[in-house]
Design a protein around this nucleic acid. Structure first.
Lengths: 341, 341
DNA sequence: CTGTTAGCGCTTTCAA
DNA sequence: TTGAAAGCGCTAACAG
């Protein structure tokens, strides 16, 4: 039978309360007593029953998720994952509140963060905008003892407990490597298509992409990046213009949203003129395009994993426990048509 | 505040015991009473606190993991993950026993399964050998009400609750696609290097690889697969022989273990003669080779994820609850040197 | 500094 | 067929 606090108390010749104090590192225990208890713990191989502890604490973890009211597939999916997680979490003594804010609106985000802080939750997760005001608001949360997790998009500096998202520089590098290798033997320039170069993730992706192209494929021309504003129509126009200007355009790396437009433009091209296309986020549209050989690879971040990870990290932070590091690293999924989930 | 059994009891005008009987579908409750309770449950939106229930039941989930005493890096890592998970699990009312069996030994595996069954655990996870006797043993477990999860390597038929591992056909296809595309414009044959074609995973990987090569790159010659027996020295010799026989060998897909030997052989080749190499499992050796540009991509299955997933599935099966499907799909990770974790 | 005691939400005897 | 009461392993007042 597994030893319980009672066994420890008996073995150490102290009361339950004292055992509890030692176990939870609370003050008010003489050094000798503490040692006796700790000895008993190791002697009996005691492992605290977390479920029982939480039950006794009657503790309900409260977390606030702040999400941009963005209408692209990825954000819609992210929201759905948070909702689903919230439902399951309610059975595990966690209450998750979801707050919507207008997309790309620094002021609104800051207001939402302040608002969240007023409610004194155990933790806050949000899709960051990398601005000084946001950083300040995040630091306030931390100062108030509230765990802060950035989701999908990170904050510069260290004004957060954890970042649940992919390494965007690595993602850009990966895209560069795939583009370069898939194009071996084919001449022509490559177009980087951003959502907006104002957002940190997109800048980082471009940075990684450019770095690899320069290091590994120096002979390949990289066009100046254009911005599709995460909007299908704009993206489509940008691609059309690039194709018109460069008849030999042979590659596109799209690292923003609005890929429906890009795909429409590609679709109109005769097969043998189609560029190698690498883009981000697996959605209905990009999946179909991959299957139809309109695009060549999709780099993806798993929103479900990001949300679950954020919750685990917030919970661990709330009760000062540790997480399995490897489990919380968000992978850059590379999907070809052959390994689609 | 979340409603508890007390609230239900009060609302329905019955005692706790009766609520419990209804909640757990036990007999001995009049139909009218049952309905009153169920009504209260839905009216108050009651969700049973599983942790508290388990605490009261004093239930400890017992799971047995049967692992091959194999000395390759992957299996060593897998074992370490199980051990780590076992430690954490003991704090969550789960007791995980690890049993070692000689690798590739059907009889020993069957004996271990029977042995496990005798102990009547709640679930068993094991690295399957795809043989009729094993299938029969697994079916016995299921018949005894014990959940069965195959780990890393699956069993044909449906003699299991769940498979925690990658889709090996898809992995082979992915390797084929990468090989074909990375080689565009370069002539020469490609060598499939198996561990053993007796194991199902390896056969499936070869099958997927061959299929893609035939469909998409029909002009590319595929040599007859050779077996490295998961042994570095043998693999090295096989590669040497292939290189000697085919001076223009330009690609190798290695889908077994023992890659240290393969890498040694590659290392000796002048840079411009090196074939495109795709292999499985990220280990110290393969990681270094990737960084050093000796190989081109590593397909990987995350042992930690597989183990955690197996445990979640076993637990869910034990208490008849559902899992998050998407979370339990084991990904085929594609690692280039740019997205190494 | 240490111990006593009453729960947390649920299950489980044992009576009625 | 139903209910009262005692716990599961742990925590948290409140005394001492």
């Amino acid at each position: 039978m597994k030893p319980t606090v009672h066994d420890i108390a008996a073995h150490a010749g102290v009361s339950l309360a004292t055992v509890d104090r030692v176990l939870n590192g609370r003050a008010g225990v003489r050094e000798v007593t503490r040692l006796r208890v700790e000895e008993a713990v190791t002697a009996l191989g005691f492992v605290r029953d977390v479920a029982a502890a939480n039950l006794a604490k009657g503790r309900v973890y409260t977390f606030t998720f702040i999400l941009p009211a963005n209408d692209n597939s990825f954000m819609i999916g992210l929201r759905a994952e948070v909702e689903q997680a919230a439902r399951r979490a309610s059975g595990e003594r966690m209450a998750i509140r979801i707050v919507d804010v207008p997309a790309f609106d620094t002021g609104a985000l800051v207001a939402a963060l302040e608002d969240a802080q007023a409610g004194m939750p155990d933790g806050v997760a949000f899709v960051a905008i990398d601005a000084a005001e946001v950083r300040a608001a995040a630091e306030n949360l931390l100062a108030a003892g509230i765990a802060v997790v950035t989701l999908v998009s990170d904050l510069g500096g260290t004004a957060r407990t954890h970042y649940a998202g992919i390494d965007n520089i690595a993602a850009g590098r990966t895209a560069g490597m795939l583009t370069g290798r898939f194009l071996s033997g084919r001449a022509g320039p490559v177009l980087p298509l951003a959502g907006s170069l104002m957002v940190r993730d997109h800048r980082e992706r471009l940075q990684g992409f450019s770095a690899v192209m320069t290091e590994r494929f120096p002979e390949r021309a990289i066009l100046a990046p254009v911005e599709g504003r995460d909007d299908p129509a704009t993206a489509e126009r940008m691609v059309e213009e690039a194709l018109a200007a460069h008849g030999d355009l042979c590659g596109i790396y799209s690292f923003g949203a609005g890929n429906r437009g890009l795909i429409r433009a590609i679709e109109r091209l005769p097969t043998q003129m189609r560029p190698v296309v690498i883009l981000h986020e697996l959605t209905d549209v990009t999946r179909l395009a991959l299957v139809a050989d309109l695009i060549d690879a999709v780099l993806n971040q798993d929103a479900g994993h990001e949300v679950r990870s954020a919750i685990r990290v917030l919970k661990a932070a709330a009760d000062g426990s540790k997480v399995v590091e490897a489990q919380e690293r968000i992978r850059i999924d590379i999907f070809l048509k052959d390994n689609l989930p």
